[in-house]
Design a protein around this nucleic acid. Structure first.
Lengths: 84, 84
DNA sequence: AAAGTATTTAGATATTTGTCTAAATAACTA
DNA sequence: TAGTTATTTAGACAAATATCTAAATACTTT
């Protein structure tokens, strides 16, 4: 739960999530959407990966990232215990 | 949204939320649940307040804190856009 | 009014975090 | 195999954060 909230606590990472909501993208495509160096984006992707929010799959020369929607269940449940 | 995720990105603050889920408590009662100084807890309460996650109401000498559940709607909606 | 209790504010410090550049790794292409 | 492209790793640094102690503020009680 710690790594999940940590991962979500950054505007750039939330924007990456929003991008992947639309379609799968490789690291370079993601980096092109930001005015941040590729190594920094790589680092953000690593944090999202460690939180199980995204999955990276090697496709030849590229690594294609996609959302792991199942992890959002945990977050959803955590919130729902508060609503009541 | 930024202050919301920031506020949730700390184990102590999430535990405070869990405590307030059970019942309203004043600052001293909350502090007694942790091995952290009162000023530090006060700081955590401030961050939760700024994120609109909790409300503090003066009751004489005490300040009673309670959850502001309406704010969780925002978080809920953010997550739901990802699930589909 | 003085003393005691509850809470916050101020200022300091160590740790964590986001960013960068340079270099390393991995895979394709000519 | 040499060069090019895609991505990550390593190391450095400035900014943000969690914590502490000491002091200030606010209310209550005697």
């Amino acid at each position: 739960m710690n790594s999940l909230f940590k991962a979500l606590n950054d505007e750039t990472r939330r924007q990456i999530i929003d991008l992947l909501k639309e379609r799968d993208m490789n690291a370079g495509e993601i980096a092109d959407e930001f005015n941040i160096s590729k190594p920094s984006i790589s680092h953000h992707l690593d944090i999202l990966k460690r939180a199980d929010l995204i999955i990276g799959e090697k496709k030849g020369q590229f690594i294609v990232y996609s959302l792991n929607t199942t992890i959002f269940e945990d977050l959803l449940n955590w919130i729902l215990t508060l609503k009541k």
